[in-house]
């Protein structure tokens, strides 16, 4: 297992060292906080946010890219294109959107866009150089969507960092996320409040072998 981790590190290190446009993807189920994390990263290093966030699932329905994000720490520098992807789900029901106050037409349109977003997110898996899987630390991590995402990244030999987001909430359970994916490093953060975000940046450097 240590050898596997080392080869991941070397792979990641080579990519950041040689390739010009490394794609760092944010993947995960809907409402895990991918865009909130993307906004935090962009705000910290570019001074502007990336996309809109909402409590209603499938707010991000298109793949968004922020080019040339450069993060710095202790004299080190890491450069990548940040790719925020729509949440991957196995079901989308327009009636769920109506339950949160949307009109039928709007709800159906959102559902249609959301299905397209999931398809795009899956297609983009092949283009990623490394991926941060963003999970909601208040939710059960043993969902097949999570397993499928991580299984696909493993099959494509794409280096993975798991982020357990929303650790500011009482219901969050970091240990459960760690127990679900013991072969990966799991960083607990609150993207919304910036809690432990330095550890997240450090983990990115660590994954890059720096």
């Amino acid at each position: 297992m240590i050898n596997v981790l080392k080869s991941f590190k070397n792979f990641f290190s080579k990519m950041f060292g040689k390739k010009k446009k490394v794609k760092l993807g944010l993947y995960g189920p809907p409402n895990g906080g991918k865009t909130t994390l993307a906004n935090k990263v962009c705000l910290d290093w570019l001074g502007e946010e990336m996309g809109s966030v909402s409590n209603v699932a499938h707010e991000t329905r298109e793949v968004h890219i922020k080019e040339q994000v450069v993060i710095k720490s202790k004299g080190k520098e890491l450069s990548f294109n940040l790719v925020d992807t729509p949440g991957i789900a196995t079901k989308i029901d327009y009636e769920d959107f109506m339950k949160v106050g949307m009109k039928e037409k709007e709800a159906k349109e959102r559902a249609k866009e959301a299905t397209k977003g999931v398809i795009d997110a899956i297609k983009w898996l092949d283009d990623m150089d490394t991926v941060v899987v963003v999970l909601d630390a208040t939710k059960d991590p043993y969902s097949q969507v999570n397993v499928t995402i991580i299984g696909n990244l493993e099959a494509r030999k794409i280096p993975v960092l798991i982020v357990a987001n929303k650790v500011d909430l009482k219901k969050s359970n970091m240990k459960k996320i760690q127990a679900a994916f013991p072969q990966y490093e799991v960083i607990g953060i609150s993207a919304k409040f910036g809690k432990n975000i330095e550890a997240f940046y450090e983990a990115l450097f660590k994954l890059a072998g720096q």
Partner: peptide, 17 residues
């Protein structure tokens, strides 16, 4: 794993009212 992702992708294509 790849088939699971493809199953999700196909499912999304089939979603209707």
């Amino acid at each position: 794993s790849e088939e699971e992702a493809e199953l999700i992708r196909k499912t999304m294509e089939e979603i209707s009212n």
